[in-house]
């Protein structure tokens, strides 16, 4: 997305706008009609660029819309990322039965959003959680999950 040489406006500006809209969608700020906008802008970029870079830059986007439209809708309508990748749409929580209260997650949490005392199941406070996933990575018991 960063490779336009800058000569053709549709490629230089258009691709950046596509990126901004996609960033909004993955951040839960997508709106109805965004997908249609992405599609029409993609066509304009492909038609208005002199070299193969602009002419193919929107290919990945158009193909994912064509085959994975439901994932776009999940992000826009339900504010959910089915694969659990888009950090801003993901919530983390601790499965109580699996958590022995080892305190490792609590120690790595950069925003001190995990509470609990030793040998008691911990809890994630969602308000301050920045969805970084550090707690999940460090947990040896598979007690931290996200969705």
């Amino acid at each position: 997305m960063e490779e336009s040489c800058g000569k053709c406006t549709p490629c230089r500006e258009g691709v950046r706008h596509l990126y901004d809209i996609l960033t909004d969608i993955s951040g839960g700020r997508g709106r109805e009609g965004d997908v249609e906008l992405l599609e029409s802008m993609s066509r304009a970029i492909m038609d208005g660029s002199i070299c193969g870079l602009g002419q193919t830059a929107p290919v990945p986007l158009l193909s994912t819309i064509r085959y994975f439209r439901d994932e776009f809708d999940a992000h826009i309508r339900d504010k959910k990322c089915p694969a659990g990748v888009c950090k801003e749409l993901v919530t983390y929580w601790i499965v109580e039965e699996k958590c022995p209260g080892c305190s490792l997650c609590l120690r790595v949490c950069p925003t001190d959003s995990i509470i609990g005392s030793k040998k008691v199941a911990h809890k994630i406070l969602t308000e301050n959680c920045i969805h970084c996933g550090a707690c999940e990575d460090v947990c040896k018991f598979g007690a931290v999950v996200h969705g």
């Binding site: 994912t64 659990g84 888009c86």
Partner: peptide
């Protein structure tokens, strides 16, 4: 695989 988000890939 199923752990990849297609919106993220398109980005």
């Amino acid at each position: 695989d199923d752990h990849n988000c297609m919106v993220d890939i398109a980005r």
